[in-house]
């Protein structure tokens, strides 16, 4: 299949089945982009997520632009982005007129309760896999736990947390605190 069409359709599928924002897209990215299409490695996707945190815009769009750009240049980035936003455009436009009642529909609420549990299951597994491949020493574990605690329990901005983690990365590497065989 034509690569541009493949980029568009793959990101369309990711947009269509993501409930709850860019992070919830991670299990689908792992399956489609990393395992099936082999368009990026897990490590690269983690880098895109990190950069997506400190750059403007929506994480899902930023990740789509990154992967599209590396596969097929600027036009690839644009096509992947159009793919990931198309389902939203179509679905929201279709339901916009009944939107005031939509989220109150009982059947929607029941389906959504189930979907949320599935997203929880998928995210738990995704985070476990990321943990296994990215946290291999005590220094990394310390960074992961501190970032979680500061992000969840304080109002420190994400930008500041990401920038600090980058600085800590430089310092810890200088102090030889990361395991050598890592990356």
């Amino acid at each position: 299949m034509n690569l541009l069409l493949d980029l568009y359709l793959t990101w369309f599928k990711l947009g269509l089945f993501t409930f709850g924002g860019g992070y919830a897209m991670l299990p689908l990215i792992q399956r489609e982009i990393i395992d099936n299409k082999k368009w990026a490695t897990e490590e690269e996707v983690m880098n895109y997520y990190a950069i997506g945190q400190i750059t403007p815009g929506i994480i899902a769009v930023n990740t789509a632009t990154f992967i599209g750009y590396y596969k097929k240049g600027i036009i690839g980035g644009i096509i992947a982005t159009l793919g990931v936003i198309s389902p939203s455009l179509i679905i929201i436009t279709l339901i916009a007129d009944l939107i005031n009642n939509f989220s109150e529909l009982i059947i929607v609420q029941h389906a959504l309760s189930g979907i949320k549990v599935a997203v929880t299951c998928l995210m738990l597994v995704a985070i476990k896999n990321l943990y296994k491949s990215n946290v291999k020493d005590k220094a990394s574990l310390l960074i992961a736990i501190s970032t979680f605690v500061l992000s969840y329990f304080t109002s420190i901005s994400t930008t500041l947390l990401v920038v600090s983690a980058g600085v800590v990365g430089i310092v810890f590497t200088k102090l030889n605190l990361f395991r050598k065989d890592k990356s």
Partner: peptide, 26 residues
């Protein structure tokens, strides 16, 4: 590379924190 040594574990912490809302509400 040194910067990403720090960013990679931090992103896992951020993802977990961002997902807590959906974990709790589900």
């Amino acid at each position: 590379k040194d910067i990403f040594n720090g960013l990679k574990p931090a992103v896992i912490g951020l993802i977990l924190a961002a997902c807590m809302g959906i974990f709790i509400s589900s």
